[in-house]
Design a protein around this nucleic acid. Structure first.
Lengths: 310, 310
DNA sequence: GGGCTGGCATAAGGCAGCCTTATGGATCCC
DNA sequence: GGGATCCATAAGGCTGCCTTATGCCAGCCC
């Protein structure tokens, strides 16, 4: 006798009732719902049994709501209208909002500067960018896509490689003035922005310089390539950066490469998203756009190399 | 691209989502809905596929709504609340309102005078009485029960006989004053309330009086036994009435029976209702009460006969 | 008035969707 | 570290729902 939430009747039957009440006709309700008239009749009967009273009076060639039916119909229609609105709102959000988790420098030095072009291509998609320093699990977050650095073996994810994780020392042209830098080892004459960055060891190794001890150098480590690049541009020292992130600064000469030697790694930057959602229109759109931008980068890089070669 | 009403997702899944969102837990939602946790997980996944985005983030030992889920949950809960209210309202109406179609005299001279006792027995049931002169089809109306006169062969209906349709001439004692009424045929010395009533023929036949011509008498026919009884009480003539309808008037002597001869018919009064709804509590209550009242009538009738016999 | 049409009811039958059981993984807690 | 809690997933069975087919009833039209 307590106030049990009085189990709701089967929702499928309620939905059929709603349509039938609106149309005052089982046949037309069946059409709207894409099922047969017999199915509507069946579902209405289910509901009437459940409620314990007829909801329609069966007249020749038509049905009419009973008092109980009339009491029920407006509330049910209203409730379904609310549900429809709610789901439409969410579905619009699903289609138009694309949230992506990225790495800091990728966001600031690659993605954000280009986003305007994506907006022009897809004005109906709003991109929400979240910067994360650690890899974000899709199962434990609500991002649609992600930019990651790694080797690309993430089970369950669709992956697209963007460009390699490679490093080259850069600095401002002013920093080199008056300093003789002929061999890679000469770099050590200059201040390093992040001497504790392990990739320095790799670069020196690639340059044939062994046993470099950087541990005693003052560590100004900024942690984020973007800031290291900015520090280098400001003449504060030599930074080890990924040239993909500083194309304009390299092209304009704000940053110069004392040596054309790249330290490569086994890691790359990847665009990833859950395999299960690879069919989503907004995800396809963003993926295609990112890949086309990357392709443009490569062309420009090739062009730059050609120019350098001449 | 037009504004299609964007098909709603399966309602069963929505209902599960509503409970899960409220509890922030699949397990507790399953308990509420009386199903297993696996079923909840399954239905949520259905809905997420349908919506195209996750609605819950799966965290260790708990789930949390995503932004989309949070957008959806309140509206869905509200809609279901409205549905619950609507169905509760109707169900209360179903349980507490009993509508019955009756014959006019049965209502005025039998049912209404006794209804107070039913109300005392079942204060939570409100009886709505509708008087109809013709038989009302249950399939084309919304009555719970009916009082009918007939032979009781109505397919699909549960029937309970109440009392026979039988007739006896009655009049006010004043009408007999100074008139010699020894034999049935003497009735003809008195004015008849409804001489065109065919049952008069049957009564005279039962009394052994043949070929009575009442066609030339003025027809004051009132059509309704109740009124005919009232006219008789007022001394306007002899009425042919069913004694079950005038127990008090007969007991008090406001109406007297010149002869103790009943004209019987093959018809009776019946309490009927659709077989399909025979389990309804209010119907059972009303049926039991009516039958007990009828049983009381019979006892009183027997008592009266005994008294007459002594 | 007889055929035709439109609308709902009902029976039979088949398939799919839903639910259950069982298990595994992950984390929290004692 | 072991147990408990909570969710995901696979396998499998059953039931519920939908379809097809048919019937009935009443109105309509020629």
């Amino acid at each position: 006798m307590s106030k049990l939430p009085s189990k709701l009747p089967p929702m499928s039957a309620v939905r059929v009732f709603e349509a039938a009440a609106r149309h005052q006709s089982f046949t037309r309700a069946a059409e709207e719902l894409g099922m047969t008239q017999a199915a509507v009749s069946y579902q209405i009967k289910i509901l009437e049994d459940r409620v314990g009273a007829p909801l329609f009076i069966r007249l020749p060639r038509q049905v009419r709501l009973t008092a109980k039916g009339r009491q029920l119909a407006p509330a049910v229609t209203e409730a379904f209208e609310a549900l429809r609105n709610a789901f439409e709102g969410v579905e619009e959000m699903v289609q138009t909002v694309l949230s992506i988790t990225t790495l800091s420098t990728f966001a600031s030095n690659w993605l954000v500067p280009r986003l305007g072009r994506f907006r022009q291509l897809h004005p109906n998609v709003a991109v929400q960018i979240a910067v994360a320093t650690e890899i974000v699990e899709f199962t434990q977050s609500e991002f649609d896509m992600g930019i990651r650095s790694g080797t690309g073996d993430w089970p369950g994810l669709e992956t697209h490689v963007l460009f390699p994780n490679q490093f080259i020392p850069v600095c401002s042209p002013e920093l080199l003035r008056g300093v003789e830098v002929q061999e890679p080892i000469d770099i050590l004459k200059l201040p390093l922005i992040s001497p504790s960055d392990p990739w320095w060891q790799d670069w020196f190794a690639a340059a044939g310089v062994k046993n470099v001890d950087l541990s005693r150098r003052p560590d100004n480590s900024l942690g984020v390539q973007q800031f290291e690049g900015m520090a280098a541009i400001a003449g504060q020292g030599v930074a080890l950066i990924n040239p993909f992130f500083f194309p304009d600064d390299l092209a304009s000469g704000r940053l110069v490469k004392p040596f054309d030697l790249l330290a490569t790694t086994d890691r790359s930057y990847w665009l990833v998203y859950p395999k299960a959602r690879r069919r989503s229109a907004k995800i396809e759109a963003f993926r295609d756009w990112v890949l086309s931008e990357v392709a443009g980068d490569s062309e420009r890089t090739v062009a730059a190399h050609v120019k350098t070669a001449t």
